[in-house]
């Protein structure tokens, strides 16, 4: 990979057959993601992507970069570990709505507390596709999508509000078939210093017969900036009011706002917190440390560590 080469969306394409259903929103997301990485001119060997289980998880194999397809609900812990060990990487985590907010909800909330510089893409079609259409944590109460025997008995979580209250410092929402706009959101999320969420609304043409492409595109969606909405926290003192504003916006359900809800770079990301404790961290993060000399002997000064315990 020559660094000077200008990257294009095709640079991130693998020749693996994309096995999503025709009309799946994932196609739009895949196109937007490839375009976003090309816009940022990120070499594939500087980007690690961790995906969960479900249709969304397959995207790791369709992207030419480090594509690590992990377990159901667990992309965030992997992504955090990789980013802290090798901060030079651009790290992406991908979950479906079930992956990220059902089985992985504990990681979602706790990731917010750390604000590691990772971009989290949440593919949200409100159903579990690969297991034939169960309700996901983002399907509203009493909605009956076609595979459900009875209307949904659970209420929905609001990913944007949850992210903001958990400590994510960037929260945005996109729509899978506004590809160029989604690309811009992903670019902003990757450029953000800290943990960023992009919730991506998408139809599931096979199992969600309520929130269809037509439904989304019947004039419901509007862009936050078109109404003069300003998501940026410029001073720590305005964090709370900006959060409240963002949460209120995220709760609108007659109309669907997309765009950046919240952006705060006044909260230190985790790497800065580490640096305050480990001054050598930026130059010598874990992945960059030599652990053995040429003779294979450990480089650690063990005598110094042992001194405290010496009794004779």
């Amino acid at each position: 990979m020559k660094a000077a080469q200008k990257l294009t969306p095709i640079s991130y394409k693998t020749d693996i057959f994309v096995e999503w259903c025709p009309g799946c929103g994932d196609f739009g997301i895949l196109a937007a993601l490839r375009a976003a990485l090309a816009d940022l001119n990120l070499p594939p060997n500087k980007v690690a992507m961790f995906t969960g289980i479900g249709c969304s998880g397959r995207i790791a194999h369709y992207m030419k970069l480090y594509g690590i397809h992990v377990l159901h609900g667990r992309p965030l812990p992997f992504a955090i570990g990789a980013k802290l060990a090798n901060p030079e990487l651009t790290v992406l985590a991908v979950s479906g709505d079930g992956d990220g907010l059902g089985i992985g909800a504990g990681h979602f909330v706790n990731a917010g507390r750390r604000n590691v510089d990772v971009t989290y893409l949440l593919f949200d079609n409100r159903v579990y596709g690969l297991t034939k259409g169960q309700a996901s944590p983002t399907l509203p109460l009493n909605v009956k999508t076609k595979a459900l025997p009875k209307p949904n008995i659970n209420d929905a979580v609001n990913p944007i509000a949850l992210a903001i209250t958990s400590g994510f410092t960037f929260a945005a929402r996109g729509y899978a078939f506004q590809i160029n706009y989604l690309k811009e959101l992903i670019v902003k999320a990757i450029e953000h210093r800290g943990l960023s969420l992009v919730q991506i609304l998408q139809p599931c043409p096979t199992y969600n017969d309520i929130h269809t492409k037509d439904w989304y595109e019947a004039g419901r969606i509007y862009r936050l900036e078109d109404e003069g909405y300003d998501p940026v926290v410029r001073d720590p003192a305005e964090r709370d009011s900006k959060k409240v504003e963002a949460i209120l916006r995220s709760m609108e359900d007659d109309r669907i706002p997309i765009g950046v809800f919240y952006k705060d770079e006044t909260t230190p990301p985790y790497d800065e917190r580490i640096r305050a404790r480990i001054p050598s961290y930026p130059e010598r993060p874990p992945a960059a440390q030599e652990i053995a000399g040429e003779d294979g002997l450990p480089v650690v000064d063990l005598n110094a560590l042992l001194q405290r315990y010496r009794v004779r």
């Binding site: 667990r74 812990p77 992997f78 570990g81 990789a82 060990a85 090798n86 504990g106």
Partner: peptide, 16 residues
């Protein structure tokens, strides 16, 4: 999460 983070770090070549 503990083992997941360790595995993420291990993938970078770090002993984790």
């Amino acid at each position: 999460s503990a083992i997941g983070m360790a595995l993420g770090a291990a993938l970078t070549g770090t002993r984790a």
